[in-house]
Design a binder for these strands. Structure first.
Lengths: 329, 329
DNA sequence: CTGAAAGCGCTAACAC
DNA sequence: GTGTTAGCGCTTTCAG
């Protein structure tokens, strides 16, 4: 691998001159510059990224950390963060926190391989966040309400969402409503469930403990939880799934059990994933403003990077998307 | 930011001793090691990633380069590559080639910020691939047939896929079959189209030039191309969309035009994206073995990293997934 | 086992 | 404008 030293030698100039020429600094004469560039071309030279980062102690890169890079749900978020990064002349890399403490994500955070990060990964502990973030290394976290030095959060109002969904079902005349929950350690799930409870209580409705099922936020989990519910004999008139993925699994289970949605049982989800409007029936759900929240997170990160003052947390509103999976009772 | 120097000083040992202790080298006495670790803890020390990479001139990281991080289609691929990376003790980062020559992807490739890369991004030119790859920096490219020093390809047999899809339609009794193509610079599209042409020719069928439409591989493009086709008056009895996304858009356009799939016109796609089986009607399509190809690409990359000999290219077979969008004519 | 010292490749004062 | 030089923070020989 050719180094800048080789380039300088071949071009017959000093190291620094080569560096200046390569970086487009104005204080190099055009012909010297051309000489250097030509030498670089000949040697197929390309600069060593780390050496530069080390020297500059800045990478011009931010990281987006997700639990699993492969969730279709993140598309919009990734895109909006990417747009913001690009518009600030920064690079974006995505990495996964799969593997917890030993994951790529934690390594990048701890070893400061980027200038800042946006984190949406529940398996990154608060402790890691706290010890990694500081005024020189900002982090915005999107799946919990946590803040500290260089650490802020932008979250979606899940409680409001849970309330809205439940309330909508109640307004449609439903009286027996089940909530199929996500993982018990999920902050998002807790919020949605709290919203559900609130609306139920407010309407004087009771949550039946036999319908208290968990589907782990996965399609298969939703399927199994629903099967379980169906085996219990008595069915609610509506079920609120903690997320759309579980609702998909749930609808499948119902279909298999000769139950029609929404005629036999109404279904509402949460997230508004892309698939939602292609399901049959089209899924009524609560839309998370992924684009807005990603964009906001990105902008805030750059504000912090520039040393500007920002709030400790931001909460975004959620929206009901009425489609076909809920019927008037 | 505390450096290893600070840690050494606080612990009262030499720099090298601190380094050894921190890296778990065996030649440090347990109590010295503990002293160092304690000092590191106190200072909230974490090593500087670049300095290490620079010194070691290895990053233990590979990159997966995609045109757009946000395509839902990549999920399975990402997951399989990730699994392979993890099992080799490597980190994986994903980055986007959005922005072409100035993209993050190109920067990472040229500046060697990783140890190797898997590329599935048609806007990365062959030239960049050739100048970046070498025996010390392997690249496996997944969307074209290109090879060179440290550069190999694993592709899916798109031509066979195109042939299979078209042949299936013909066997179902269809005689007028349109192919809605992807971007003209797409290698994948060219392959699929060639397969289509082959099957048509073999059956003595003719491609009508008025149905020669392009949908750019996007949902919206498929929608527009289909609208265009419908405006022409005469409709084919079956249409083969270059990918599933376009088929989705196409089906929507047909629905809006009071056309029923598959009763009025049969539809076949390509890719077998997750959505395909949730559409109404469920989409008949050609499945790309994303898991297998990602896994293979990953394994090959590591073989190259280890200096092992590998073939210049690998071609994977494709599979017809029969669902509901094609009917017997 | 420990410590001193030599760089990895690059940038950015600083002097000429 | 151009060249000299001092590190960025780390690993790793080599001598004690």
């Amino acid at each position: 691998m050719a180094t800048i030293k080789d380039v300088a030698k071949l071009a017959g100039v000093a190291l620094s001159t080569a560096s200046y020429a390569l970086n487009g600094d104005s204080k190099v004469s055009p012909k010297t510059k051309e000489k250097v560039l030509e030498a670089a071309r000949q040697l197929n030279y390309s600069k060593n990224g780390f050496a530069m980062d080390l020297k500059r102690s800045r990478t011009n890169t931010i990281a987006l950390i997700l639990t699993d890079l492969s969730g279709p749900f993140y598309s919009e978020l990734i895109r909006s963060v990417q747009d913001v990064a690009l518009s600030h002349g920064y690079d974006l890399i995505a990495c996964s926190s799969l593997g917890g403490k030993n994951s790529t994500a934690v390594k990048f955070l701890r070893e400061k391989r980027v200038d800042g990060a946006i984190v949406l990964a529940h398996n990154i502990t608060d402790e890691i966040l706290f010890t990694s973030a500081n005024s020189g290394f900002p982090i915005v976290v999107m799946d919990r309400m946590t803040s500290g030095e260089g650490l802020i959060s932008v979250i979606v109002d899940g409680e409001m969402g849970g309330y809205t969904a439940t309330r909508y079902l109640i307004d449609k005349g439903h009286r027996s409503i089940a909530y199929i929950s996500g993982p018990s350690n999920s902050f998002d799930n807790a919020l949605r469930y709290r919203g559900y409870q609130l609306a139920m209580k407010e309407a004087g409705l009771e949550e039946k403990s036999k319908w208290k099922l968990s589907g782990n936020f996965t399609r298969d989990g939703g399927y199994k939880a629903t099967k379980m519910m169906m085996m219990q004999g008595e069915l609610p008139s509506a079920v609120f799934y903690g997320n759309d993925e579980m609702a998909i699994g749930g609808i499948k289970a119902m279909e298999e059990g000769a139950l029609t949605v929404p005629d036999d049982v109404s279904v509402i989800g949460f997230d508004d994933i892309q698939l939602a409007e292609y399901l049959n029936p089209k899924l009524t759900t609560i839309r998370q403003p992924m684009h807005e929240s990603g964009s906001l997170a990105g902008h805030l990160l750059f504000q912090m990077l520039n040393g500007e003052e920002v709030n400790l947390s931001y909460k975004l509103r959620v929206e009901l998307i009425e489609r076909e999976s809920v019927r008037q009772q």
